[in-house]
């Protein structure tokens, strides 16, 4: 397994110490244990938002191998972690585990546009579709003390009576699946975490993790169609670049996923301005696979959204004019 070793200084040790502390706080696993063998780090990723011109944080993934047959039981922090799941790598690598996550992105820029604009954009886009992996854990642990895990029926009954049929239909149609809680939903790995894992997984045979990944798009067929057409040359170009960089050095995995890697659903704030911002916050060395694939993709996607919005408005106007015309003609006779 080849992990890049970019940072060797004090800063690296600090980030590592933070990761060790956070893991201990969140799930109670002691990575300073003699059984926790530190094997390297994945390239760090810069996460930026559309409204913060500056990148908001840097994620530094470090890799440990537990050398020993038994991992001590986890202690889940109830306010942070709902559950933990051990997932075999072969599940993550299997094409049959590939799925999609659908996210209502209009919510994400609620604080930008008016409710009307939001509704218009939502009706045009539908949900945003992200590449995902359906996790099949070999072992799961739930934080059973929380209401999320199991709440008494009285509370549930109250909750269902307060939501009307209309609002339930509304949330079913537009609901943000990614944000839904509950144990019945399939576990989907997508977005930022998938972006980071994709490059790691791509190092493992059959080296198809990145191939299995697909571009984020929208559920509205016209938007998807237009974006597909617009991004054909871009996809071809990025694919070629990926192949080229792969030949040079197969181990290169590099920074910046995120801003682009799909989990930045509020990039859609870019309908007004956000995309330029996230482009600015971009890391110069984006030679890791998913980053290469996504380069300029969101710019094109945004163009596609506007084109289909324009087409819809023109079609509507045309239709209205046609109705008026036929009515007027009929009235004339």
């Amino acid at each position: 397994m080849n992990l890049t070793d970019e940072k060797t200084d004090k800063e690296d040790e600090n980030d590592k110490a933070v990761a060790i502390r956070e893991v201990s706080e969140e799930i109670g696993l002691d990575l300073t244990s003699p059984h926790a063998l530190f094997v390297g780090n994945l390239p760090e990723r810069i996460v930026s938002t559309s409204f913060g011109q500056v990148p908001i944080m840097v994620l530094c993934p470090f890799v440990w191998l537990w050398v020993g047959p038994d991992v001590p039981p986890f202690k889940l922090q109830p306010t942070e972690v709902a559950s933990t799941h051990w997932v075999p790598l072969r599940v993550l690598l299997s094409p049959s585990a590939r799925a999609y996550e659908y996210v209502d992105v209009s919510d994400r820029f609620a604080h930008r546009g008016s409710t009307v604009l939001k509704a218009v954009i939502r009706s045009i886009l539908g949900k945003m579709r992200f590449s995902a992996i359906r996790l099949t854990p070999s072992e799961s642990l739930y934080c059973s003390s929380t209401a999320e895990f199991f709440s008494p029926p009285e509370e549930n009954a109250q909750a269902t009576t307060t939501t009307s049929l209309v609002s339930r239909f509304y949330s079913w149609y537009l609901g943000d699946h990614a944000g839904a809680s509950g144990n019945t939903r399939p576990l989907l790995l997508w977005g930022l975490t998938l972006g980071m894992l994709a490059d790691f997984l791509d190092q493992l045979p059959p080296h198809n993790a990145v191939q299995l990944w697909s571009y984020p798009t929208f559920t509205s067929l016209d938007v998807r169609f237009i974006i597909n057409i617009l991004t054909i040359p871009l996809k071809r170009r990025n694919q070629a670049r990926l192949r080229k960089s792969g030949m040079k050095n197969e181990t290169v995995i590099d920074s910046e996923t995120e801003a682009v890697s799909g989990d930045n659903p509020w990039f859609i704030g870019g309908l007004s301005k956000g995309m330029e911002a996230s482009q600015k916050g971009k890391n110069a060395t984006s030679s890791y696979a998913v980053g290469i694939l996504l380069e300029d993709y969101y710019n094109m996607a945004r163009r596609g959204v506007w084109i289909s919005a324009g087409l819809r408005i023109m079609t509507t106007i045309g239709f209205v004019l046609y109705i008026i015309k036929t009515h007027w003609k009929r009235g004339g006779h």
């Binding site: 709902a82 799941h85 051990w86 999320e148 790995l189 509020w266």
Partner: peptide, 19 residues
Amino acid sequence: ECVFIKRAARVGDRWTSHV
């Protein structure tokens, strides 16, 4: 195998309940 967490359901967290 590798381990994932499912984040707790929290109001105002952009990654609420995410893996």
